[in-house]
Design a protein around this nucleic acid. Structure first.
Length: 269
DNA sequence: AACAGTGTCAACCGCCATCTA
DNA sequence: CTAGATGGCGGTTGACACTGT
């Protein structure tokens, strides 16, 4: 009846992942693709729960991830999207190529929330904080907020639909179906790893999957795994059926013509 | 130098909708 | 049809780093 449990609770390791575990997981996924997470730990030789493997992959190891803090455009976009979507981080993340829901959630809680409060905006409702605050003698925080608003390079737009004049290049791009932060003609990957695995490199030339990490990742990982199989078939990147959701190539490079993508990678669609 | 307080973020927890035997 | 597993999601935690006293 039903399915088998996702993992044997006994003997399952928890806590931070080691470089060795990361290497095993990445090697496994590059070889077999994202399929049944329940089977991943066993097949990859990991004493981890499948759920933990999925999380580690999606939040940290996926090659299409951007690293580092969100830039101003991304931050503004998150604020705009949060105004309409609320705490649906996965939905918000889907609009920001290379960013994960966890990352956005963390950034919201540690940076944006405080920034909005300093600016006198309720981070939940996106409306100005209570009128009583305005009636009080301007506090230091309010003065600071005014200063920040007047000096903010990326204006904070009203998000409650109250302004008919509201126009954001970011949101405008969405209305036309264009991603605001990803231009396939320009390398938007400031991460050395991502630069290396840019599609024209690793899809067009799968043998290039053998590489060394650069910069700070090198000491953690050393030599990366090999290209999936001798043939280097990257079709798993496009295998929607296997996961039931968009693979990372599709979700991460959402605006690229994936049929062209697939053709160049000799992948059956 | 030692300690406390604060910030950051990776990872876990628990819930829920969906899937499947 | 149903019980139970899976995958996904949002909330929370805890370890570590950093800063202030």
């Amino acid at each position: 009846m039903g399915r088998q449990p996702c993992c044997d609770k006994l003997g399952v390791k928890k806590g931070p992942w080691t470089a060795e575990e990361d290497r095993k997981l990445v090697n496994f996924i590059l070889t077999h693709g994202q399929c049944c997470w329940r089977a991943v730990p066993k097949l990859a030789g990991l004493r981890r729960c499948g759920k933990s493997c999925r999380l580690r992959w999606t939040n940290y190891l996926r090659p299409d991830l951007k690293r580092g803090l969100l830039n101003e455009a991304e931050e503004s976009l998150v604020i705009d999207l949060h105004a309409t979507l609320g705490n649906r981080w996965s939905k918000i993340a889907a609009r920001l190529p290379g960013r994960t829901d966890n990352e956005i959630k963390n950034h919201w809680n540690t940076h944006i929330k405080k920034k909005l409060i300093r600016m006198g905006i309720d981070p939940v409702t996106h409306k100005p904080l209570q009128e009583q605050a305005n009636e009080q003698v301007p506090s230091k925080a309010n003065e600071q907020a005014k200063f920040e608003v007047s000096n903010h390079e990326t204006p904070v737009y009203p998000c409650d639909g109250s302004s008919d004049n509201f126009s954001s290049p970011i949101i405008d791009n969405f209305s036309t179906g264009k991603s605001p932060s990803f231009d396939p003609n320009i390398s938007s990957f400031d991460d050395p790893w991502m630069n290396h695995v840019r599609w024209e490199t690793f899809l067009g030339n799968p043998s290039s999957w053998n590489f060394m990490f650069e910069g700070d990742r090198q000491e953690d990982y050393g030599e990366f795994g090999v290209c999936p199989s001798a043939g280097g078939d990257p079709s798993w990147l496009f295998n929607r059926e296997s996961t039931g959701v968009e693979s990372f190539a599709q979700s991460g490079f959402g605006d690229i013509d994936m049929s062209e993508f697939a053709r160049s990678a000799n992948v059956r669609s």
